[in-house]
C-alpha cells in the first residue's frame, strides 16, 4: 500500500503538490508512481523561468523500464528545480515526498489549487485503479 501524506494535494496523473510559504508550490511524483515506475535512472527537469500550463508535460522521468512524462499540476512559472536529481535520480524512489521533490512553481492563480485532489480522494482513485 502506497504512502499518501494527508498534508499534500494530488493529481490523477500521480503528482503531489505541497504549498510552501510565499505563494510557491513544490511538486513531485507520488509513492505509488515511483513504485510503479521502478528504479529511476534519469530526470529531465524543466528550465528555470519556463511557463507551464496546467496538465502540460514539463519534464520526463525515466526508469530502467520506461520513460514517463511529468505533468504540471498547476499553471505557473518554474521557480526552482531539484538539481540533485541530475546525479541522483534514485532520490525519487527513496524519498518521493521529500528529497525527491522535482520542481517549485509559482502558480498563476492560487485558487486553482482547490481543483486538486485531497489525500482521501487520491487514495480512492488508487483503489479504483487496483492499487
Amino acid at each position: 500500500m502506497s504512502s499518501i501524506p494527508d498534508d499534500l494535494q494530488y493529481t490523477a496523473t500521480h503528482e503531489w503538490v505541497r504549498v510552501l510559504s510565499g505563494g510557491v508550490v513544490e511538486v513531485g511524483i507520488t509513492d505509488h508512481a515511483q513504485h510503479a515506475l521502478g528504479d529511476l535512472v534519469f530526470v529531465e527537469a524543466p528550465e528555470l523561468a519556463r511557463r507551464v500550463a496546467a496538465r502540460e508535460s514539463y519534464g520526463v522521468v525515466e526508469s530502467v523500464k520506461a520513460a514517463s512524462d511529468l505533468f504540471s499540476p498547476v499553471a505557473g512559472e518554474i521557480m526552482a528545480v531539484n538539481e540533485e536529481l541530475a546525479s541522483a535520480p534514485e532520490r525519487i524512489n527513496q524519498d518521493p515526498y521529500g528529497a525527491g521533490w522535482i520542481a517549485r512553481i509559482r502558480p498563476d492563480d492560487a485558487a486553482s489549487l482547490s481543483t486538486l485532489l485531497s489525500a482521501a480522494e487520491y487514495g480512492k482513485l488508487l483503489e479504483t485503479q487496483g492499487d
Binding site: A36, L37, G38, K65, A66, Q129, G130, D131
Partner: peptide, 10 residues
C-alpha cells in the same frame, strides 16, 4: 523484452 509496466496490474 519486458513490455512497459502495467500500472494497473491485474
Amino acid at each position: 523484452v519486458p513490455p512497459c509496466p502495467d500500472l494497473t496490474g491485474g
